[in-house]
């Protein structure tokens, strides 16, 4: 199986590559449309700031490629946020795959949220054999509110979407590659999804 991690210069992608190596899969890093279009699975990572990440995507024209992908795509952290309609961070227009606007946590809570929080109301095959209230590692200041595409929720001052799904597009706010055995299980589930033609 060909796993391609979109490499657009945004943050730490080694960890994701290593997480796949730990389950015996060599993932490829690429910023080339052809390679990404050909992949069986696409990982859309991202750490850092939304508007500069979006600029990097645009500079390689990947912003128009990603929404057209037909194979399962997994956005992680900022990757998930960029798949939304917009982000309050740097007033960024997103890829518009998920019909929700990303906003900042209020200062009623410490920002960023850093640490292990629970995911509940699990509604995707991504979470097969994952227990309700399982812990995942999160680091973020912005969040996607609850919406029709919410596939898991977490609570930090309020309930928000810690996972989203629409058709072949999956997004997780948490870092499965850093979330111990349960996180690894989610990556394995992503590899096992049927490809819809």
């Amino acid at each position: 199986m060909n796993i391609t991690i979109i490499d657009y210069g945004a943050g730490n992608i080694q960890s994701i590559k290593f997480a796949f190596e730990r389950i015996g899969i060599t993932a490829v890093l690429s910023d080339e449309a052809e390679t990404i279009l050909r992949a069986d699975r696409v990982i859309f990572p991202g750490v850092g700031e939304a508007s500069s990440a979006m600029q990097k995507l645009k500079s390689t024209k990947l912003d128009s490629i990603i929404p057209t992908l037909k194979q399962p795509v997994l956005g992680i952290c900022l990757g998930m946020q960029l798949m939304c309609k917009s982000s309050e961070e740097g007033n960024t227009k997103g890829l518009g795959i998920f019909d929700v606007d990303v906003v900042k946590f209020s200062n009623q809570v410490k920002v960023p949220q850093i640490g292990w929080n629970q995911i509940t109301d699990l509604k995707s095959r991504l979470f097969q054999d994952i227990a309700e209230n399982e812990y995942m590692y999160l680091v973020h200041s912005f969040y996607a509110p609850l919406c029709n595409e919410t596939a898991a929720l977490s609570n930090y001052g309020l309930d928000y979407s810690s996972a989203l799904q629409k058709d072949n597009f999956y997004g997780v706010q948490f870092h499965p590659e850093k979330s111990s055995k349960a996180g690894q299980r989610i990556l394995e589930n992503f590899l096992k999804l049927d490809v819809k033609s």
Binding site: Q14, E21, R22, Y137, V139, K178, S180, G183
Partner: peptide
């Protein structure tokens, strides 16, 4: 460490 450890 990054290769072998699955926590931050």
């Amino acid at each position: 460490v990054a290769k072998n450890v699955n926590i931050p």
